[in-house]
């Protein structure tokens, strides 16, 4: 158990250093920052995939989300970056941690060969695509980047002006409301479940289902 993770982290550290150097070399400070955030994003997700512990995986995602926010900053989307930090790191990640805490830990679920195989396959495919796309696609790139639109007022106006994104804004509001209600509805403990649990040890639903399906199979 120890050896694979040591190798993994070693490779990860080396790769990060190389990336930082490459970034600094290619585009100066900007390149360095880009390399830093990329390392956060890719490294965080790699660790998330690789880590056996759910809790640690969840914390690794902090890097991914934070790195994404950094990339947003580099792209001139300041408001979006802050929103990303607030919502993902402050909200979604907290939710995930709640989920982790409310479910039993299972340290044996990670199958290393499977993960590595998946990584390898994905790596090949991505490499192929990146190389291919980078080589083939001609990105029409504005020679002079316009001043980025990132001021909060502009985004607010964009949301509230009738001819721009108001529909999307309202739709988002509706979606959030529905989702909130739905989440509460789905997650609530039913009264009968509670009483049932108190009265007698109820047979797990899965067991019932397996019985039923067995009977079904036998009848075939």
């Amino acid at each position: 158990m120890k050896a694979p993770s040591t190798i993994f982290y070693a490779l990860l550290g080396l790769g990060s250093l190389a990336g930082l150097a490459l970034g600094l070399a290619s585009a100066g400070t900007h390149g360095l920052l880009f390399a830093l955030f990329t390392i956060l994003v890719v490294g965080g997700s790699l660790m998330c995939v690789f880590e056996p512990s759910v809790v640690r995986s969840a914390f690794c995602l902090v890097g991914t989300f934070g790195g994404t926010a950094g990339l947003f900053l580099l792209l001139g989307a300041d408001f979006l970056a802050m929103s990303q930090l607030l919502i993902y790191v402050g909200g979604i990640l907290a939710l995930l941690l709640f989920g982790v805490m409310l479910t039993p830990p299972d340290l044996s679920e990670r199958r290393l060969p499977r993960v590595l195989g998946g990584l390898a396959a994905v790596g090949v495919i991505v490499a192929f695509f990146v190389g291919k796309v980078a080589g083939v696609a001609r990105w029409v790139q504005t020679p002079q980047l316009k001043a980025p639109v990132s001021r909060t007022e502009e985004i607010g106006v964009g949301f509230l002006a009738a001819n721009e994104y108001m529909i999307a804004f309202e739709l988002a509001a509706v979606v959030l409301t529905v989702a909130l209600v739905a989440a509460v509805y789905i997650a609530r403990r039913r009264k009968e479940d509670l009483t049932e649990n108190e009265d007698r040890p109820s047979e797990p639903f899965a067991a019932q289902v397996s019985q039923v399906s067995q009977a079904h199979a036998e009848s075939h």
Binding site: A27, H30, G31, F34, T38, V41, V42, S45, L46, C48, V49, V54, S57, A58, T64, T68, L71, L74, L75, L96, G99, V100, T103, D106, E109, R110, R111, R114, V115, G117, G118, L119, V122, G123, I125, V126, F129, V130, V133, A134, A137, W139, Q141
Partner: peptide, 29 residues
């Protein structure tokens, strides 16, 4: 940085997301 660099990062992240979904055996993942 050029656009392709961001796209590459995005692609890698996407691929890792897929790997995360497919390979791990916990719904949280």
């Amino acid at each position: 940085m050029a656009l392709s660099a961001y796209i590459a990062v995005s692609a890698v992240l996407f691929a890792l997301g897929i790997v995360c979904i497919v390979t791990r055996r916990n719904i949280i993942y």
